[in-house]
Design a protein around this nucleic acid. Structure first.
Lengths: 246, 246
DNA sequence: CGTAGTGTTGAGTCAAGTCAATGGTTGTGG
DNA sequence: CCACAACCATTGACTTGACTCAACACTACG
């Protein structure tokens, strides 16, 4: 890969996983001018009503996307990690309706959306890879809807843990893999549509039934397929995984 | 608009609403070769595992998208109407993971995905319009997640009614508009993550509190902003509306 | 070592689910 | 044109999963 130490490598890696890019494509990508921003844990990476003419990409770290109801309740809609494009380019851009907040220290690349669109026009393979990535995102959110609507507490928590394990641990999906919970129990509650108290009890129940083992905010999954069955979790080749950068 | 009676007019209308197309763009669109398929109420328009190399577009009628859990429970994920693209093109395409079933008699256009991608390459404005449409879809599903996670029964039903009114009635969004429920109460339940019994009681409660008036499967909304407030419903310029074709 | 955020636990309540029966509509075929 | 069947809507009685309220314990960090 060209430009080994280039900051945008996580994006290049992600897009390459979606559709094969040539070295020329990667060179064009690396020629993008961007701003490299660091956000501390708890800081906001994007906000409702943000200027939609900028495209943000997570270079490292984890973040969660959420909205508020009129009554001030929070609903977490997605967990984002390395290589995720936070707002996909289009002209005109669709304005941001939600907040993205750092769960760990995060590095974000900020690119002018016009540059991004231009890149897509010049490199059809990159445009394609972005389309695949958008389709993947759509599929992931739909799975989230199904998760919220038709599963009980244990199933929802289990489903979220499976997703986190895949995105957090390169060994995710195998027995003994570990989901690093960058989320507090209160955030788990907002992600699954439950209350903090009930999340706590559900986690304990899952531990007592040996679905998981806990130590601090790390969840070990001794038997992946057993938990996946409880969660009714389906991973496809398109499921987003952590990009083991470089 | 060129080619007034062309079958693909609903798609052209939708894309034009997303980003301005030229007459040349529309001509290129109308030059697509497609198959025109009719599906009766209750018939399947698309299924899990369908050939992903075909792109389906609703020309008329309504349909719902759903998935099944391992226990056989159904979760409705979206309501689709005229002009909706059921699977967005990308190369490689992301395989279909859900079912789309007709709520009314439906006309579907089936286009080879390769042709669709090719069209996008030749007409950048069409590619752009599709990107906007995809971003809109993403935004809509995210709203659905927030709806499922953090609202009680009345709020969820109210939110769905608002969405249906906008998509079903050209006057949707104004006092006195009517949401045509092509959904049975059992389907409403699967869309909101509730049981049939509870949907029934919630509808009656909304009627008793004069939020709605019912006759058969038509819901009249006497006071839009009152219901929208209960539902915490936010419509943006990007909210999908029915395309009042020609 | 105090403070603030997070995690844990118990007791009581309520929204929503389950089970089960009864009406209402619609469509179809004799 | 009626009778039946199939599906859909409605209602009641009861159960339960999840929420609320409230207290207390743990941990991290200045």
């Amino acid at each position: 890969m060209t430009a080994n130490g280039h900051a945008l490598v996580p994006l290049a890696t992600r897009l390459t996983a979606r559709a094969n890019l040539t070295d020329d494509d990667r060179d064009a990508l690396f020629a993008l001018s961007y701003q490299d921003k660091r956000v501390d844990t708890g800081g906001y990476i994007a906000q409702e009503g943000d200027s939609p003419s900028l495209c943000r990409i997570i270079l490292s770290g984890f973040a969660h996307r959420h909205r508020f109801t009129a009554q001030g309740m929070r609903q977490i809609i997605a967990i984002h990690g390395q290589g995720d494009v936070l707002n996909f380019p289009s002209s005109p851009p669709v304005p941001a309706e939600d907040f993205v907040q750092a769960l760990t220290p995060v590095r974000v690349a900020i690119v002018a959306m016009e540059d991004m669109l231009d890149l897509g026009r010049r490199c059809p393979r990159i445009a394609n890879a972005l389309l695949v990535e958008m389709n993947t995102e759509i599929s992931t959110i739909r799975a989230w809807v199904a998760n919220m609507g038709r599963r009980d507490a244990r199933g929802r928590i289990a489903h979220l843990l499976c997703e986190l394990a895949l995105r957090t641990d390169p060994a995710g999906g195998r027995d003994g893999c570990v989901a690093a919970l960058y989320l507090t129990q209160s955030e788990l509650a907002d992600a699954t549509g439950m209350t903090t108290v009930h999340v706590n009890r559900t986690l304990r129940a899952l531990e007592e039934e040996t679905y998981i083992q806990r130590q601090r905010r790390r969840i070990m999954i001794p038997n992946w397929s057993r938990l996946a069955a409880l969660a009714d979790f389906r991973s496809s080749p398109w499921t987003r995984r952590i990009t083991t950068a470089e």
